[in-house]
């Protein structure tokens, strides 16, 4: 969905537009907060709070930049706020506070978010069996022979599908590093 459309739909109280935005940005925003906080539960809590506030204040929301960068910025500010108030046991806390421009750059985080969308899209476009094999290997750490046994197929087939998946990702992610 176009970002402008989604912002005005949300302002009008369209919960479906809000859900769509949430679903597409929740994982990368959590990943970003995790990087700063080093605590998954806190990261999730913060991102949910940011979305909650967005919905609550939707009517008088003034966003000059894009909705995306607004959300990344909000997550960044909240995470940093937590670190500053030492509510986080983070051995990198000093590091975060002293040098947050480089590693925690919002630009980089937004790019990771974009890559994530492409990753999800590519994954969803893989043929069914190919996707299944790829996920068994990557998400669940199964070895080729284990996958072959589980799916009653030959190891050669697993190899072929894994090659197909790699090629697809290599092509779709070509512009990003």
């Amino acid at each position: 969905m176009n970002e402008q459309i989604s912002l005005s739909a949300i302002k009008n109280g369209n919960i479906n537009a809000f859900e769509e935005l949430f679903r597409s940005l929740y994982p990368p925003l959590c990943g970003y907060a995790l990087k700063i906080l080093n605590d998954s539960d806190l990261a999730e809590e913060i991102v949910q709070e940011v979305f909650y506030q967005l919905w609550k204040k939707k009517e008088d929301l003034l966003i000059t930049s894009s909705l995306n960068s607004y959300l990344y910025k909000a997550v960044y500010n909240r995470s940093l706020h937590l670190v500053e108030h030492k509510q986080v046991e983070n051995k990198y806390a000093n590091h975060v506070l002293n040098d947050n421009s480089e590693i925690y750059s919002i630009q980089d985080a937004m790019q990771a978010g974009e890559i994530y969308q492409i990753y999800k899209k590519t994954l969803s476009q893989l043929p069914h069996r190919c996707r299944k094999i790829f996920q068994m290997n990557r998400d669940f750490g199964l070895k080729y022979n284990e996958i072959a046994i589980k799916l009653s197929i030959s190891v050669k087939t697993v190899e072929a599908d894994m090659g197909k998946a790699l090629k697809a990702f290599r092509h779709s992610l070509a512009e990003y590093k």
Binding site: E19, F22, R23, Y26, P27, P28, C30, G31, S40, A43, E44, V47, Q48, A112, I115, Y116, Y119, R138, D139, F169, L173, Y176, K177
Partner: peptide, 18 residues
Amino acid sequence: KTINKMQEIQKFDTDTAW
């Protein structure tokens, strides 16, 4: 490497959170 990074992100449970 990018795929591996995306898998770190993918672990967050969007359904439950929503």
